[in-house]
Design a protein around this nucleic acid. Structure first.
Lengths: 226, 226
DNA sequence: CCGCCGTCTACTGTATACAGTATGCAATCA
DNA sequence: TGATTGCATACTGTATACAGTAGACGGCGG
């Protein structure tokens, strides 16, 4: 009788992983920071072993970088990485939506409600969270689990950029209108139009972030020890 | 890209990782096998620490599965995973080719030569290796590094299925003709036609493997530890 | 004979000890 | 004075010791 699948909260390495992720995302561990394992382990209250496991996973997730023999570094924000990450969503998401097919009416109404919440969301964190949730719900019918995991991974990696921007500038939230257009197409049972609108939606957030990255690029030149 | 013998240069965890990968791929660690860390560490001649780091990375790569508190298990071959993996390439590869644009003439001629080698390849391993190399060369001009990494990762995960099949059945190699059609389109400078042919190529390998998986599925029922 | 409970074993998860190496600083030599 | 080399320090990579727990097996009660 194992219906308790979700109780697996116990693992220091998992805890360290999510702690580190949020520390990186919200800037407590700034981009470019070199990570001292001993200090970091003390700071997190764990030993080096689970910490290193967490670091390893974050390396494969793309949040930090491992230099052989020199330890780990928080990956600096780079225009290249952001542009490449952002270019993937307009490829993957419409493909996933096509695989999912037209959503059920209950899902569409759920999406409508979610979008309402998104429109009235206060604060960058909440808005991003809700936007991600909206897209996840949109694709929930996709039978290809691996594709969905890819999208989740990319979402995680881009969130760092979005939050970094939000902390300095106020990002205009036009996602609500985009979503409404997608929903309109879905209500009209027009999958192609929905995919096209989704593609536009996913491309739209790019420009302001690239502009912001470009503006702060000079600062990062200092760090470029190559 | 794989140096299976240069264990000395890399760190032990890297060495363990690639060693494990090939052990999984070529069946020395059969699908479904539960991994005992102590025995495995002895077998590889390393201690548990670098072994666990390798296992962790292989989990994120999808080759093995971590059960909390119960250790690691080689992920069983499953039709679902294979179908989902195989469905991704026809999405990703044409997108990458579009981003790359029409290849240079030197690249096209290189592709032609590679395909000749592929046609005369003896042995399943060599054929798969060359097929992967061909596709990698085809997309080499793609500026989106992250997209290419996604494709490489998926290639890795599917190779296990392809090799498993090859060991039991002789897969007809029709890739050579597919590639020739793609090349013809490229020589005619017709990117759309090339993408379409590439998509067909990437979809074509699916059927025999699915049939084989389906045939051996009953055996796996025994293992079904939900 | 069947089921439940306690103990026992073995394995995972975590901490810590050890060794090798990169790095910064200083002293010496040109 | 500048460069180069030797040394000290500290950090990573690896091994090993420790602890907690899951699963098995056997004893005991029904």
């Amino acid at each position: 009788m194992q219906s308790s699948e979700s109780l697996q909260r116990t693992s220091l390495s998992d805890a360290a992983e999510s702690a580190l992720r949020s520390m990186i995302v919200d800037g407590r561990l700034p981009a470019g920071e070199r990570l001292n394992e001993v200090h970091l382990a003390e700071r997190l209250g764990v030993s080096r072993t689970p910490l290193r496991e967490a670091l390893n996973r974050l390396v494969t997730e793309g949040a930090i970088e491992a230099r052989p023999g020199r330890g780990y570094v928080v990956k600096p924000l780079s225009i290249e990485e952001f542009e490449q990450l952002y270019a993937l969503r307009p490829i993957l998401d419409p493909a996933a939506l096509r695989l999912a097919g037209l959503p059920s009416f209950s899902r569409i109404s759920k999406l409508g409600k979610l979008n309402q919440k998104l429109r009235t969301a206060r604060g960058a964190d909440a808005a991003i969270e809700l936007d991600d949730a909206w897209h996840q719900e949109l694709l929930a019918g996709c039978p290809n689990q691996i594709l969905l995991e890819l999208i989740v991974g990319i979402t995680r990696r881009t969130r760092r950029y979005e939050l970094a921007l939000m902390r300095e500038a106020r990002l205009v939230n036009q996602a609500g209108d985009d979503h409404e257009r997608i929903l309109a197409a879905l209500r009209a049972r027009d999958l192609d139009a929905a995919c096209a609108a989704l593609e536009r939606n996913l491309k739209s957030g790019r420009a302001p972030i690239v502009a912001w990255l470009r503006a702060r690029e000079p600062k990062q030149r200092k760090e470029s020890a190559r």
